[in-house]
Design a protein around this nucleic acid. Sequence first.
DNA 1: ATGACTGCAAACCTTTTGCATAGCG
DNA 2: CGCTATGCAAAAGGTTTGCAGTCAT
Lengths: 162, 162
Amino acid sequence: MKEEALLQEHIAKHHLKVTKERSAILRAFIEAERHVTAEELYRMMREKHASIGLATIYRTLNLFCECGLAEQRQFGDGHARYELTYNVNHHDHLVCTQCKKIIEFENMDIEKLQEKVAKAHRFTIYSHKLELYGLCSDCAKSNSSLRKGKDELHAVRSSRSE
Amino acid sequence: MKEEALLQEHIAKHHLKVTKERSAILRAFIEAERHVTAEELYRMMREKHASIGLATIYRTLNLFCECGLAEQRQFGDGHARYELTYNVNHHDHLVCTQCKKIIEFENMDIEKLQEKVAKAHRFTIYSHKLELYGLCSDCAKSNSSLRKGKDELHAVRSSRSE
DNA sequence: ATGACTGCAAACCTTTTGCATAGCG
DNA sequence: CGCTATGCAAAAGGTTTGCAGTCAT
C-alpha cells in the first residue's frame, strides 16, 4: 500500500513515530467515502477503535495534509472535508446545494485555460479549487416537492474531458 | 447610488427597516477594499461610527448577501470575506499564498467550459468558485528572501478573456 | 531513556443568538 | 404603537492546545 509508504517516509524524515492510531486512521481514511469530515471519520472508527479521540483524528488528518496524502477542502457548510490526494488525478467538484451530493469531474481544457490565465499574470500555480454550485438533475426535477437535504454526502466518480 | 436602491427594495419587500447603521455599513462596504472581513469593516468603522457593534456588521453583511448585493467567500484562512457583487462582472481569483495578494480575473472561455461540464452531468449551475493558489511574480522572485506574508490583502482589478 | 503521541477537557476564534432597549414606519 | 434593529454579552460550533500519562524508537 503506497500510501503507508509515503506516510512512513514523512514520519522518518521528521523524527515522528508510527503509532497504531495513525495506521488505523490512515486505513479508515482510505476506505472512507471521499470528502470525509473529521467528525465522520471519528464516528466511523468508534466501533473498532473506540478509544481514539477526535483531537487525534484532527491531528492525524493535518499530518496527512502535511505529507501530501490528503487535502483539506471547504465546501461552505462549516465542516472541513479531507480528501485523499495521493495517486489520484486532480479533479473538481459539482456541489448540489439541495441534496449535498458532490460529483467529481476532470476537465483538462479548463486546466489548460487556468495555466494560460496564470501565465498572463506571471503567476505560478501550485493548486486550485473549482467548485460549481447548483442543482443536480434529481433535485431540479423534484424541486417542487422540496425535501429537506438531509441525505448523506455521496461522491460519484466520473471523468470527462470535453 | 444603485446599491442603495437595491437594498431598499429588498427592505421594503420584506418589511424590514432602513436604519442609519445599515446605510453607514453599506457606504463603508462600498468604499472598502474588495474581499473585506467583517472584522476589518468593523475596525474601519470604529472612527466615525464607534457605536456599531460587530454583531450588527455580521447581520448586515448577511443581509447584503440575501439581497444579492454581496457574496461571501472563503479563501481558507478562517475568515469569511465579503465582496460587492452588484453591477460587477463575475470574476475569479488568483491567490498568492505568500503575500496574500488577490488578483481578480475574468475568463469567458472557462465559464463556457463550466457550462459544458454542468450540462454533461445534467447539473444546473447557480454559482461557482474558481481559485488558483500559488505565487505571484513578486513572491516567486523574492522567494529566497522569504519574507513573512504579513502584508495587507490587496485586490488588483484586471480583465482578461483569452 | 527520550521525546513524540494520545485522550481528555479546556481554550480558541469566528460567527450567531438572546435579551432588553432603541428606533423606524 | 407594533415590530424590527441594535449592542452587549453569552452561546455556539468546529478546531486546536495544554497537560499528564503512554508508547515508539
